[in-house]
């Protein structure tokens, strides 16, 4: 990973869940409200993040770097990067979302939530269950009753259980 030790720039170490260390400039992590507060209040040089997998952390750091380089002239490029960023398997996307929520990186959280929403959008209940592997614990009677209670949601959805 990044091990830039240029000039007087402050360096910080992040420790991922499996003890892997990531060295990066302190200015990068300021995008995270959580880390910002830690750095400012306690002047730490190493922050353990045991709940975040290293693989997830790699992705997030990649985002922070790209975001820090964002200027009006490379907006397009950044948008493409963002698109690619969330184009990952579902588990990974949800891992990232949870981690970003924990780290309080608001812009990225918003973007991840949109990406998750895009995978739910216009899908039938059955399809969403299948994609996210949610097991229904309703009895069939219960389910049809609940469906009746919120009819506006099911217009044109009744026979759509394939996808």
């Amino acid at each position: 990973m990044a091990s830039s030790t240029t000039g007087e720039k402050k360096i910080l170490t992040l420790k991922g869940g499996d003890n892997e260390e990531f060295i990066l400039e302190e200015s990068l992590v300021l995008q995270s409200e959580l880390l910002k507060n830690m750095v400012k209040e306690e002047r730490v040089s190493s922050i353990p993040l045991p709940s975040i997998k290293s693989k997830t952390l790699v992705k997030i750091i990649e985002y922070l770097k790209k975001h820090a380089e964002l200027t009006p002239s490379n907006k397009e490029e950044f948008k493409n990067f963002e698109k690619e960023f969330v184009n990952v398997v579902l588990e990974e996307l949800l891992d990232i979302t949870v981690a970003v929520n924990y780290l309080k990186i608001n812009g990225l959280l918003e973007f991840c939530c949109q990406a998750v929403a895009d995978r739910i959008k216009d899908k039938s209940v059955e399809a969403v269950r299948k994609i996210f592997r949610i097991e229904s614990d309703f009895t069939p009677e219960e389910e049809s009753e609940f469906r009746k209670e919120t009819p506006e949601a099911f217009e044109g959805d009744l026979d759509d259980t394939t996808n």
């Binding site: 979302t97 929520n101 929403a117 969403v128 506006e152 949601a153 959805d157």
Partner: peptide, 26 residues
């Protein structure tokens, strides 16, 4: 997912899609 994240995801959905999620499971 934490409840605030779920709500934030639902904010990006239409009311119909978000309401539908109430019959996913208990």
């Amino acid at each position: 997912l934490p409840i605030n994240v779920i709500h934030q995801i639902q904010d990006h959905l239409s009311i119909e899609d978000a309401a539908k999620m109430s019959v996913l499971s208990r």
